[in-house]
Design a binder for these strands. Structure first.
Lengths: 343, 343
DNA sequence: CAATCCAATGGTAGCGCTGTCAATAATTGT
DNA sequence: ACAATTATTGACAGCGCTACCATTGGATTG
C-alpha cells in the first residue's frame, strides 16, 4: 500500500453506510437527494451520520461530481460601505444553504475582473455574482461560457448575461435633481469621485435633468477619479466653489462626499440649507443623524445581496425566476439639507 | 467505462506532462516544489503549462494531498468599518499567494463562532484567522486540535492559541483618557455600544484611568448592547447628559458614536471643544474631516490584516515567526475636539 | 396471471492529483 | 578511478466520493 494507513478515527461515507446497513451509494444519495430513499433507510442513514459525526469531504465530492458548491462573488471594493451592506445580504442568504461564498475583489479594475473570472471559471463554481454591467468583451465571453447561473448586481441594463438585481442609477440621480429643482434651486453643482460606471450614470442622470430644465452648465460639475472620502468631499466642494461661486445646491454622488461638503460648509459658515442645499446618495446611516440631516437617495443594498444569492441558488437548483431582471428601485429621502430652512 | 468520456478539450496534468516529455509526477512537482526540478525540465513544463493553458484541479489536489489551500477567516461583523479595513489587508496579502480566503461571520455570537470553527475543522484549512481572544472553552479546544497555524487578531493577550496580532484596547483607552485629563477635564463621560469583549477592555482602561485620578463615577458611564450607529451616539449622549449634566468631556468607544455625539452637540448648541471635549476610537477617515476635527485613537487595522495573513502563510510554509505575538500599538490622534478652542 | 412499469438500491469504475518509495543520474571525496 | 552521496525522476496505488448503469422487488394494468 502506497501511503499511510487511513487514521482509524477517520469517518468516511463507507463507515456511515456500514453502520446504517446500506451501500455507500445509498448513503451518498442521502445527502444529495434524500427523497429518493425509503423512509426507513433515510432514518437509518441519518442516525448513523449523527452517531459517527460524519462530515462529507468536499474535495472528494467536487472531484467525483465535477461540481462545487461555491458561489463566486466579484465586487470592486471592500472599503466602500455600499458593498459591506451587499455582502452582508449575500452572506446572510447563503447561510443555511449548502453553498459557500468565495469573494474576490477587483479594486475597480476591469482587467483584474477578467483575471478573476478566468480563475473562477477554472474552479467551476455553482454560481456567480458579479458587480455591474460594464465587463470587458472578454469577461463577458467568460461569463457566458461559464455554464452556471450568473447574477449581475448593483445596476440593471438591457442585456443581462443571465440575471440581474439592481436599480437605475440614472433614474435615481435624475429624481434627486428633480427634487432639488422643485425646491427652487437653479445652480446645482455635481460632485463625483471614483467615477466608476455607476457614478457615470448618475452624472448622466444629473446632466439630463439639468438640461431638461435648461440649467446645465459644465462649470457646475467637478469630478475626480480618486476614491471617495469625506475629506475629498470638502476638497471637491472647495474646487466647485472656486470654479462657480454662485451655486445654490450640490448633488454628491455619495454620502461621504455629502458629509465632507457639509463639514466644509460649516468651516466656511455657509448655512445649509439656507445658502446651499445638499443631497447625497446611498442613504448611509449617518445621513439621517447629521445636522442638518442629509437628504439622500436610499438604495436597497442588503436586499440586493439577498436577492442575488437567492436567485443564483434557485437557478442552480432548477427554479429559474420568471423574470430575470429585478429592479429594486430607490427611495428619495428628503431631509433638512434640501428643504426650506426651519430656522 | 462508467462515465462520460472526459471532454477532449480537458487539459489534465497528464497532458502537460506528455507535452513536456516528463512524467506526471514531475509536472506535479513543478507546481509544488519547482526547485526540485532541473532547470531544463522546469522550463519544458513551464512552457507546456502555458501552451495548454493548464489550470490545476484544486479538488483533486486537495483530495490527494489531504490539504487545502484555504485560509479561514472568522470575524464578528461585516458591517463594522473596522473589519472592512482588516479584510482589505487580509485580501491584499493573500493575493499573489496560492491561498484562498474563506470568510465567515459570527455576528458577535460565540456560539456561532463555535459552529463555524467546527465547520472549518472539517475542511482542514491550511490556516485560520480568528477575531479576539474570548473564544468559548470548546472553541479553544477546536482551535488547538486544528493542526494548522492559527492567528488571533484585533487584540493581544497572554495565552495565544498559536499566534496573535493586535493591540491593547485597555492601554489605548487608558491613554485616551490620560490625554483628556491632561487637558484639565474632570468629568469625563464614557459612551459604549455593542460592548463586545474589546469594548469591555476599553471600558476597563477608562475606569482605571479615572480611578487613578480619583475621578471615577459610575454615573459617567452609559453603555448598551445595541450595535453602534451614529444615531445611537446622539441617543447615548442624550442619556448621559440627563444622567450627569455636568460632564466636560466624552470618550466614545468608536468614531461613529463620537460623530453622533458631535451632531447632538450641534443640535443642542453645546460648543465643542469649549463646553465639551470629544474623543473617539479607531480614527476612521471622517474623524479628521469633521468640524471640529475629532480626536481619536488610530488603530492599524489594515496592517493587522496584512500581518495576520503573512504570519499564517509563513507558518504554513514552515517559517514560524520568532515572536508569536505582535503588538501593532495605536496612536492617539489629538485634534480640535479635545484641545483648547482656537476660537 | 403475465406483462409492464417504476421506485429503491447496489456494483463498478473512475474523477485528477499526490504520497511514498524505489530507481536512476550526477556529483563528490579520497 | 571507484565507492559513497546526493540530486532528479518515475511507478504505483490510492484519496473519498459520485456518475452511470444494472438489478431487484413490488405495485399496476389489462
Amino acid at each position: 500500500m502506497g501511503r499511510k494507513q487511513t487514521k482509524s478515527g477517520k469517518i468516511r461515507l463507507t463507515e456511515v453506510a456500514k453502520l446504517a446497513g446500506v451501500s455507500p451509494i445509498t448513503a451518498s444519495r442521502f445527502f444529495r437527494n434524500p427523497e429518493a430513499l425509503s423512509l426507513s433507510k433515510r432514518e437509518r442513514v441519518d442516525s448513523a451520520v449523527k452517531e459517527l459525526g460524519y462530515v462529507p469531504n468536499l474535495a472528494a465530492r467536487a472531484l467525483a461530481s465535477h461540481r462545487t458548491e461555491v458561489i463566486g462573488v466579484v465586487i470592486p471594493s471592500l472599503t466602500n460601505n455600499v458593498f459591506a451592506d451587499v455582502l452582508r445580504g449575500i452572506y446572510d442568504s447563503s447561510e443555511g444553504s449548502r453553498y459557500t461564498i468565495q469573494l474576490a475583489n477587483t479594486r475597480y479594475s476591469i482587467l483584474q475582473e477578467e483575471k478573476l473570472l478566468r480563475l473562477f471559471r477554472a474552479q467551476k463554481p455553482a454560481g456567480l455574482i458579479v458587480t455591474g454591467i460594464n465587463q470587458t468583451a472578454e469577461s463577458r465571453k467568460i461569463l457566458e461560457s461559464m455554464n452556471c447561473p450568473v447574477t449581475q448586481i448593483m445596476e440593471i441594463g438591457d442585456s443581462p448575461v443571465d440575471m440581474m438585481v439592481g436599480f437605475s442609477h440614472y433614474d435615481a440621480a435624475f429624481s434627486a435633481i428633480s427634487h432639488i429643482l422643485e425646491q427652487g434651486r437653479r445652480r446645482i453643482g455635481f460632485l463625483g469621485a471614483r467615477m466608476d460606471p455607476r457614478v457615470q450614470r448618475r452624472l448622466d442622470g444629473y446632466r439630463d435633468a439639468m438640461k431638461g430644465a435648461s440649467l446645465f452648465d459644465p462649470n457646475l460639475v467637478v469630478t475626480t477619479s480618486v476614491p471617495t472620502t469625506v475629506t475629498l468631499g470638502g476638497t471637491l466642494f472647495t474646487d466647485l466653489l472656486a470654479q462657480t461661486p454662485d451655486i445654490d445646491a450640490v448633488f454628491c454622488v455619495n454620502d461621504d462626499l455629502a458629509l465632507g461638503t457639509l463639514f466644509e460648509c460649516q468651516r466656511r459658515q455657509i448655512a445649509v440649507p439656507r445658502d446651499l442645499a445638499i443631497v447625497g446618495f446611498n442613504d448611509l446611516e449617518f445621513a439621517a443623524a447629521a445636522v442638518p440631516s442629509l437628504s439622500s437617495v436610499r438604495t436597497n443594498r442588503y436586499e440586493m445581496g439577498r436577492h442575488a444569492v437567492t436567485m443564483v441558488i434557485d437557478a442552480i437548483e432548477g427554479r429559474r425566476p420568471r423574470e430575470p431582471v429585478i429592479d429594486l428601485g430607490f427611495q428619495l429621502m428628503v431631509r433638512e439639507s434640501s428643504t426650506p430652512s426651519t430656522i
